[in-house]
Amino acid sequence: MSCFILEQAGIDAPETLADVLAAAETIRDAGIMQHPVAMVSGAGWNLAQEFVNLYLGHGGSFFEPGSAAPAINNDAGLATLEALKALTSFSNPDYLTFDSNSIQALWEAGEVALMLHWGSRGAGILSGDNAAPEIVEATVLAAAPTVEGQSRPATTLWWDGFTIAANTSDADAEASFLAMLNGITPERVAANSELAVWLGEGYQPTPASAGVIASAEGGAAPYPMTPYMGLMHTALGDNLAGFLQGTASAEETLETIEAAYVTAARAQGFLN
């Protein structure tokens, strides 16, 4: 969020989804910006990721417990669609083509006031390589908003780790493990704090990681790692745009997404 614009409009830093929407409305009504909100809402994978974030924030789960059967056609799904529509109504009309690079550019050009963006982009914006100093100064990274009545921020945590293949020889595995451990010593982590959000000893949070850390502390969920989640993500990405453009109702959209997912999950052997 941009603290200068929030001050100019006389609003406190938004914490919930309703706060974000109210702030956007105030900024628009005050005539400061016509399209104050940006999110990674390009049709396809990106838009699906926004749905995943908001849906988990609404307390939803994607599948029937212990099964690959879809379970998004419910109140949380409907509320998520409405939230997406409300947020994108404050976005530039091109929002269905927005990827992570294009909204970062919008921010650096000072054309938006509130942005739901990937935490990994914080460092790039704050480095000031592409943005004017006043934009960098106004940029505040905060936790993803929570949904009313829910506790965890509407976002997912993506993290990297090490893997060693099971068929590696013991000697190679040991050497690789030592090399990788050497790469995350507290000194090395401390020396490279601004490059990533490290999940280990020696890490000092920087302004660039403040949002990610706050979301994690708020109890944000990791991205669901079930094997059929990728198919759900694709089904979401292919079918959300119709709802936002008004060619399909929310109920129809959720039904279409479930039907698309079931077709793919059958062909991939997850459902019969």
């Binding site: 390009g42 049709a43 396809g44 269905l96 083509t97 990827d99 745009a241 453009q245």
Partner: peptide
Amino acid sequence: EPIVGFQAQAN
């Protein structure tokens, strides 16, 4: 190519 280039898959 134009569909990918124009990111037109929504339409």
